[in-house]
């Protein structure tokens, strides 16, 4: 349904050109859920916004690539044509539900506006539709919610309203950019539940963007792991979690504070900070933070190579060496405790 081919989205900044999205290729089918995972600054939000061109341009520009959506290249459409696609065919939910709603208008007005933007309806009809949307996203008193201002609702309710607005045009594709990061774990569980339910009801495809691999474990059919603007590993959820083939994905998985650990266990963190995209390191971008780095990693950028059906990873280590190195490291760590420090480059 959506096919992204060799997409590049660069930002023209004072520090030079920032390669926020660098040669990305992926596709998503009907009713499928894709998880895009990466740290802050890995370019995942720029990617999401590029898909429907919400990025201000300039400074963002697209030197290469195409975004094929049902036979059309979204990069070549006019602003007017894009407006017809946004909300009607592709819509988006953002991280912070408070700043995505207008604080001075009641929820009802904002929702009715969204409904009428997508359907030819009278105000009365739109209100009925808005109420049913609110019920759909699990708001128990939709009438009262319509009459509330955004600040009167809790974070979870606001995010539900955002989802209702996003669904008002019956989109074929929903892009959720960190939809649960600002929320409590309990509310997060509810929102994820809601997304799964709505997906099976409407058959919407979902792209969910997050920094937490735990969030996508249940939801995503396929997962893309992004690091400094590039895909470093791609595969089904099973591939990523059980046949991890890239040191970065492996490190991310180990960093999740797990309920399996006890008080005396030390969390394994990824040392340092994500690289500055204006001046990325030579060779493999993950090289400075990689536990298995060798001088060879510095020479050339690893290519994304197929290692299983639909499973791709960008690392020069082959499967066997990677496995043995992992074991070695785990053995070493269980022996002596490591001292962590986050000494790294300052982003400037």
């Amino acid at each position: 349904m959506l096919k992204v081919n060799h997409l590049k989205a660069y930002i023209d900044s004072i520090d030079g050109i920032v390669k926020a999205v660098d040669d990305l290729t992926f596709s998503i089918g009907k009713g499928e859920t894709i998880g895009i995972v990466g740290e802050s600054g890995s370019g995942k939000s720029i990617l999401a916004q590029s898909l429907i061109q919400l990025n201000p341009s300039p400074p963002v520009f697209y030197p290469q690539g195409e975004i094929q959506f049902e036979g059309r290249d979204l990069l070549k459409l006019s602003e007017k044509e894009l407006c017809n696609i946004r909300g009607n065919e592709i819509s988006m939910i953002f991280q912070d539900p408070l700043s995505s709603l207008n604080p001075i208008f009641k929820i009802g007005r904002q929702l009715v506006e969204a409904v009428r933007a997508h359907h030819r309806m009278t105000r009365r009809q739109a209100e009925v539709k808005a109420l049913s949307l609110l019920k759909d996203v699990g708001i128990s008193q939709p009438e009262r919610c319509m009459k509330s201002y955004p600040h009167e609702l809790s974070g979870g309710m606001r995010q539900r309203v955002m989802i209702a607005i996003a669904l008002s045009g019956h989109p074929k594709l929903l892009i959720a950019d960190e939809p649960t990061t600002a929320l409590d774990v309990t509310i997060q569980a509810q929102i994820l539940e809601l997304l799964t339910r709505l997906q099976s009801k409407y058959g919407t495809s979902i792209i969910i963007i997050t920094h937490d691999l735990g969030v996508v474990a249940r939801l995503a059919d396929r997962i893309l792991v992004m690091y400094s603007g590039k895909i470093v590993e791609e595969g089904t959820a099973e591939d990523i979690f059980y046949r991890t083939s890239m040191p970065y994905t492996w490190s991310l998985l180990r960093a999740i504070p797990s309920l399996k650990l006890t008080l005396n266990d030390r969390l394994v963190s990824i040392p340092g900070q994500p690289p500055d995209l204006a001046s990325p390191p030579q060779g493999c971008n993950f090289y400075p933070r990689c536990p298995f780095a060798s001088p060879k990693c510095r020479e050339a950028e690893p290519v994304l190579k197929e290692i299983g059906k639909g499973h791709r990873a960008a690392c020069i280590l082959d499967e066997e060496t990677f496995e043995s190195r992992k074991k070695e490291l785990e053995k070493k760590e269980s022996g002596g405790s490591m001292i962590s420090n986050g000494q790294g480059s300052v982003t400037s």
């Binding site: 128990s140 809790s154 979870g156 309710m157 409590d184 774990v185 309990t186 509310i187 997060q188 569980a189 509810q190 994820l192 539940e193 937490d212 691999l213 735990g214 969030v215 474990a217 249940r218 959820a237 099973e238 979690f241 059980y242 998985l253 999740i256 797990s258 309920l259």
Partner: peptide
């Protein structure tokens, strides 16, 4: 709490969370 483990996550008997806080 989401588990970073798709199989366990699918097999899990999750407690449905009623209402908002």
């Amino acid at each position: 709490i989401p588990l970073p483990d798709p199989r366990a996550e699918k097999a899990r008997n999750r407690i449905a969370i009623k209402n908002d806080f």
